[in-house]
Amino acid sequence: MKLTVSDLTAGYAKAQVLFGMSLELGQGELVAVLGANGAGKTTTLRAISGLIRPWGGEIRLDGQSLAGLSAARRAALGLGHVPEGRQLFPLMSVEENLLLGAAFLAWERRQESLEFTYALFPRLSERRGQLAGTLSGGEQQMLAIGRALMGRPRILMVDEPSLGLSPKLAEEVLATLARIKAEGMGVLLVEQNVALSLEVADRAYVVEHGKVVLAGPAQELAQDERVQKAYLAL
């Protein structure tokens, strides 16, 4: 499955955020979208998953345009999105949150998916009966990722998973994304933590003012002078 975003423009009310955003993501690939706050990373994900309607440009999944499809339809096509702020169901248990992730996408395979998720995040298994609202920040992030996995997506988009986590936990969560990639999913990682992201990603896009200004293999970007200066404080 291949996700192609080309020349995307979008925004909120009269404030344009994306000015011709383009990117590609293939199966079994971990691609990072890096940039400062307000560069348009989250808006790109929201446009891809159908939470906002783009003003122009194209979003294609295996060549098929996603224009006009609801968020739910796109999820059914295999797009998973772990949104900014996790957006859990605070008054439901960990397991209920997970089951909701499967309820309308892959209900028959829920048991299998639960086992997969609990193996990926043993912490969630320990806390399966606890209300999601009472989890720590790191556990909530794991739950948000686990919930998205329950729908058996083929492409997983993760928005700022390291936000609010300790450096150690952030590293742990990003390492899990590498394992998810190893399962054959395409992972699109949006992050402000550039150093950490370049460690786990295969490729990366650097976004400024709503469009890509730099793209390439992660290792190359980590050596790039401009990236080092602007984002790595080297």
């Binding site: 159908g50 739910a72 998973g80 949104p83 957006q87």
Partner: peptide, 19 residues
């Protein structure tokens, strides 16, 4: 289940395939 989910969070249910 979906009705209770929508009551608790407006954004996530769509991403989980709930219309």
């Amino acid at each position: 289940f979906a009705v209770r989910a929508v009551a608790q969070n407006r954004l996530a249910p769509g991403l989980l395939g709930i219309e």
